[in-house]
Design a protein around this nucleic acid. Structure first.
Lengths: 128, 128
DNA sequence: CCATAAAACATACATTTGTAGTAGTAATGC
DNA sequence: GCATTACTACTACAAATGTATGTTTTATGG
């Protein structure tokens, strides 16, 4: 259970923690757009679940409210997401790339950047 | 509801249909590795749900069993998956690429290929 | 024809996720 | 010091998903 799987809503909540470093339930709630903002208790329940999954932790109490912080990094969480998706594609990246291009979400700049990173990696680490 | 969202198990079942063109429940079930193969009725229930979602349809009856075929293409289903994932990243591909590289799943060849495709697209379609 | 085997169909149930209400408790404003 | 407000803790519930059992129907082999 290295990286717990996080749901959509859980991820949206984590985003506030990742961005701010820490936050109260109220702050996490208010980070949602006024239109279509879940109830306070909805966020609360979800944060409790995140806590049960060890994805967040309480770091202190200020006044009568608790302050939470992420216990898993954005990187790790995102990595988990992508690995899960990739598994559905039999671990192959190529179809994923193809779809990204198709939907116009992948720019040439993105690709150039990736290429640069890959070349750099290859130089340092032939073992891939 | 252009493209229904398909769950992990549903996708694994669809895979058989996409690959074979058509299949009976029994065939879909037997496509799973003997080790860790869901019960016949599990597949059946899931196929029925796929039918309710209009992702598969019965095309004929042979003997006492039905033959099903996919009613959504693999491409469309995969596209939906990736769009959903991308939404979690604010629609940006870059983080996805970064993670693919990090996990060693994206080869330089994949990137070169993507680049070629992109360049070709750009020439034909400046509106992107 | 009819017993049997296979498949269909209906139903059930646990877990996860999104959603929220309610009751109790703790700060805070005077 | 106490009313009001804000937050916590507990509970509830529906939809989606994975999983399966029980019951009925349909072919099929003799």
């Amino acid at each position: 259970m290295a990286e717990p799987k996080l749901s959509k809503l859980e991820l949206r909540i984590m985003e506030t923690l990742w961005r701010n470093g820490q936050a109260s339930i109220r702050e996490m709630q208010e980070a949602f757009p006024e239109k279509d903002r879940p109830a306070y208790t909805t966020i609360q329940t979800t944060v409790y679940r995140l806590e049960a999954k060890k994805a967040v932790q309480r770091i202190k109490k200020v006044g009568n409210f608790h302050i939470f912080a992420a216990a898993v990094s954005r990187r790790a969480a995102q990595r988990r997401l992508i690995d899960d998706l990739l598994a559905l594609f039999g671990g192959r990246s190529q179809p994923v790339m193809a779809h990204l291009i198709e939907s116009g979400k992948l720019t040439l700049a993105d690709v150039k950047e990736a290429e640069k990173t890959l070349l750099k990696l290859e130089r340092k680490d032939g073992s891939r």
